[in-house]
Design a protein around this nucleic acid. Structure first.
Lengths: 242, 242
DNA sequence: TATTATTGTAACATAATGATACAATAATAT
DNA sequence: ATATTATTGTATCATTATGTTACAATAATA
């Protein structure tokens, strides 16, 4: 379970939501050639967590995940991928939630629904960093971007969840070319290559990269981009919806 | 949710189990050059379903999946892969379970836990067909193997779950070579190739296949296999544990 | 001992990928 | 204007991987 919009703090049974099941969202952004993750700070505690939420009794799981990602980013259409479920008992640790509820003036009963064992469905989201408005909630001081290589200490197994999300992103990037969900609508081949290099953690050869990407036939050349630099202007591309 | 060992049919609240969450197991076997799936027949109804089960309140999700697969096959160590979660409301259909409970002499209250909306964690299992003892349970007449290309009508979205499981198996087969979990301990290169051809649904070239598999360096040559055929005897291989 | 069917792998052909080279060009400097 | 600079787009060649053909090896049978 994760940082979440708790529907009603005075609702110790979690009515209206599926019990013991949560969503954790690893929301990736790309900025300054670095991969970023959106994280939440719980008010009046040192706890930092992934954005998360619960599933309404009659809500599609994917819809719930989209709701969680939407609420934290302000975006409507978001690329989401359900990459793993985390269901070990070792991840059960009610202490952070006790502290968080206490810090918000709630003295939870021992059987409070938030203090029970949770299984989490991990989704990762790819968003255009420039379009996101990180949005906290009343249980949180703040919500903001963190460099993937410089993460703070996170509650429970959220570090592991991010690691698994990144692994999944990496394997998919090669085959399905989902990367431009992290870029603005129009981008240069250099932008896309820099993104791939950051995600994969290695340098790529420019001619081979361009050849491979263009051979996929899913990019469209839009116009040139006059950057003001003293050199040839690169083409802009956009994703060709199929 | 799926065919399952229901812990206590007179337990209308599902006490001891996580509510609204189930496991569905697509147990693959390989026999006569065909992929098989283990399916359950509910007693006194025409319903056929995947083996399934629920998660105990303090049980690891993976342990619960292993328990389900173990109970139906009689095997202890089973290759399992958690490939997808099915969480749409469209899959909700309480009718089969009403009929099944009725057929077993239970008149369920409308709020019986089995009649609620369920989210299912899909696992696929790869087992050695020759070692499996298909084992039904008291709610079931029978439990047996079905050719993947000749499946009966299944309850709910179990057809879709099998389809997704097969897709996941296919993509993993190329990269991770998990296929020999479907074969006996020792097998010939021909056996392995036939398996790959069946799973991928296409013919492969023998020299290229052998070269690729051996270059992975995870097979060990054991001995020759004298089949009695009027031809050169093939080597037997076994998986080299790393 | 010849025949048959299948295996193991060499050898070559083709395709994919890795790496280098260089012309094109947009801004700036002379 | 013209030269200079940095970067882009792509041609070209090198290397590796994969697809394909060919054939010797061999276990049973004739």
């Amino acid at each position: 379970m994760a940082a979440t919009k708790i529907p009603n703090e005075g609702n110790p049974t979690g009515e209206g939501f599926i019990p013991n099941l949560a969503i954790d969202a690893v929301i990736f952004g790309f900025h300054d050639n670095e991969l970023k993750v959106l994280l939440m700070h719980y008010s009046n505690t040192g706890y930092v967590a992934l954005p998360g939420g619960f599933i309404r009794l009659e809500e599609d799981l994917d819809v719930a995940a989209m709701r969680v990602a939407s609420e934290r980013t302000g975006l409507k259409e978001i690329f989401l991928d359900q990459f793993h479920i985390f269901g070990d008992m070792t991840r059960f640790d009610p202490e952070p939630f006790k502290a968080i509820l206490n810090a918000n003036g709630i003295e939870p009963p021992v059987n409070h629904w938030l203090l029970k064992r949770f299984i989490s469905v991990g989704y990762f989201a790819l968003v255009d960093f420039t379009k996101v408005t990180p949005t906290p909630d009343k249980l949180f001081d703040s919500c903001g971007w963190y460099d993937l290589n410089d993460l703070p200490r996170l509650i429970q197994d959220h570090q592991l969840i991010i690691k698994k999300a990144l692994e999944s992103l990496r394997t998919q990037l090669d085959n399905k070319l989902i990367g431009f969900n992290l870029l603005p609508d129009n981008f240069t081949m250099g932008d896309l290559q820099a993104l791939h290099e950051t995600v994969l953690g290695k340098k790529l050869l420019r001619p081979a990269f361009q050849r491979k990407i263009l051979s996929m036939g899913i990019l469209e050349r839009v116009a040139k981009k006059y950057s003001g630099g003293a050199h040839k202007a690169p083409y802009l591309y956009r994703f060709l919806p199929k």
